[in-house]
Amino acid sequence: MTESVFLMPTKMSRRIAVVLPNLAGGGAERMHLDLAREWLKLGLNVDFVLLRKEGELLDLVPHGSRIVDLEVPCFRDALWPLMRYIRKARPDVVLAAMWPLTVVAVFAGRMAGCGARIVVSDHEQLSISYAGKGAGHRLFLRSSMAVGYRLAHERIAVSRGVARDLARLSGIPAKRYRVIYNPAAKGEQGLEGRLSSVPENAGPFVLSVGKFKAVKNHALLIEAFAQIADKVDVNLYILGEGALRPELERKIAALGLEERVFLPGFQHDTILWYQQAQLFVLSSNHEGFGNVLVEALEQGVPVVSTDCPSGPREILENGRYGRLVPVGDAGALAQAMLDELNHHPDPEVLKRRAADFRVDRIAREYLRVMFGESRITPGLTGR
């Protein structure tokens, strides 16, 4: 296990250990970086405890936090290294994300015997994400959660839909899961770091952001765009990277859209893209939350989304702040895109909705849950 300069904790410097597989360029990893910046501002210490020190977001770890590399290949090997870290660093809170690492963290924390509060958080509907893994995997999923999540001090879900799904899997009542939406509205934080530039010749464009994987269903978005390409003077840009890139490129070529649909790759900071987009589209089959919808709303960008479980309907308040269409319906998606490109909702209304998901606001919600309200001093949450 390697780490940066080690500072022993004191009674005056409470420490949060954020346990993640790595710092790949996903939404869950980004949100923990954003939360950490707020916690550091409030005077807390933050450790990022990673199974492996790797990922596109490593260079965005906020100054003042530490990276602890457990140097293990997978969650099965993480129990003892994580327990040793907890015993040595003695964090006040261990916040673990992404099953099954959540369960490993619970047992490591309990075995360490240091009194750390163990908090688990999940960012997707696990029953959907692992639906094709078979009966044995489902049994492991349910049984590990039924035991491990009961031993956690707190359980966080990023949407009501995720909370209901976790409750069904674990047998723990939904009321024992705390729903805290993702801190997807970054405010001034969104202007920090490297801003990925938009090509000068991009022209007016529709934007989508997400990894190139099946659940995001970018193929559906490309099909929908093909239906309206001759009716609108806009291009389509899909930001991201992943294993499905060759497949998406073939679909773009087959539809003759090489001059209208572009895949610029992974972008460290997408704020300038949002600011210049005419429309944002989410085409996913399912989402735990849907950070990108909030990111678009924060810039006043109109939104079209599939009505997938479970975040979009909650974020858009049943269609009040953006259009919802059935999952997998290219025709409905195309029509909604066309309608929204010809409709101009008030950007300030969209921005006010996004403010409900501000980083500073959500960071304090996490603190209240992680430490327990009675453990948070007025000065800590009042700034």
Rank of each mutant, 00 (worst) to 15 (best):
residue 298 E to K: 00
residue 319 G to V: 08
residue 328 G to C: 02
residue 315 I to W: 10
residue 332 A to G: 14
residue 315 I to Y: 11
residue 296 A to W: 12
residue 324 L to A: 09
residue 319 G to T: 06
residue 306 T to S: 09
residue 312 P to V: 01
residue 332 A to S: 11
residue 305 S to P: 06
residue 308 C to G: 11
residue 305 S to W: 06
residue 310 S to K: 10
residue 322 G to Q: 05
residue 331 G to A: 14
residue 300 G to E: 06
residue 306 T to L: 05
residue 312 P to M: 10
residue 297 L to T: 00
residue 301 V to G: 05
residue 327 V to T: 12
residue 324 L to H: 04
residue 295 E to A: 12
residue 314 E to Y: 07
residue 311 G to E: 10
residue 308 C to Q: 08
residue 298 E to S: 15
residue 299 Q to A: 15
residue 327 V to I: 13
residue 315 I to S: 04
residue 309 P to W: 14
residue 327 V to H: 01
residue 304 V to G: 00
residue 299 Q to Y: 14
residue 317 E to L: 14
residue 298 E to I: 01
residue 305 S to C: 05
residue 332 A to Y: 03
residue 317 E to F: 13
residue 306 T to C: 07
residue 315 I to F: 13
residue 313 R to F: 12
residue 306 T to D: 00
residue 306 T to N: 05
residue 311 G to Q: 08
residue 309 P to F: 15
residue 331 G to Y: 08
residue 312 P to E: 03
residue 321 Y to I: 02
residue 325 V to I: 02
residue 327 V to N: 02
residue 297 L to Y: 08
residue 302 P to E: 07
residue 330 A to M: 02
residue 307 D to A: 13
residue 313 R to E: 11
residue 308 C to E: 11
residue 330 A to H: 04
residue 305 S to F: 06
residue 316 L to Y: 11
residue 328 G to W: 06
residue 315 I to K: 09
residue 321 Y to K: 01
residue 307 D to Y: 07
residue 299 Q to F: 15
residue 302 P to W: 12
residue 329 D to V: 00
residue 322 G to F: 09
residue 325 V to T: 09
residue 313 R to I: 04
residue 320 R to I: 10
residue 297 L to P: 09
residue 298 E to C: 04
residue 323 R to P: 01
residue 321 Y to V: 05
residue 313 R to H: 09
residue 318 N to W: 14
residue 332 A to P: 08
residue 307 D to S: 07
residue 306 T to P: 07
residue 297 L to A: 02
residue 324 L to F: 07
residue 318 N to C: 14
residue 299 Q to G: 08
residue 316 L to Q: 10
residue 309 P to E: 15
residue 304 V to F: 09
residue 330 A to V: 06
residue 309 P to M: 15
residue 331 G to F: 13
residue 325 V to K: 02
residue 295 E to C: 12
residue 301 V to N: 01
residue 329 D to F: 03
residue 318 N to H: 15
residue 313 R to L: 03
residue 310 S to F: 07
residue 326 P to A: 03
residue 306 T to Y: 08
residue 327 V to A: 02
residue 303 V to L: 07
residue 320 R to L: 13
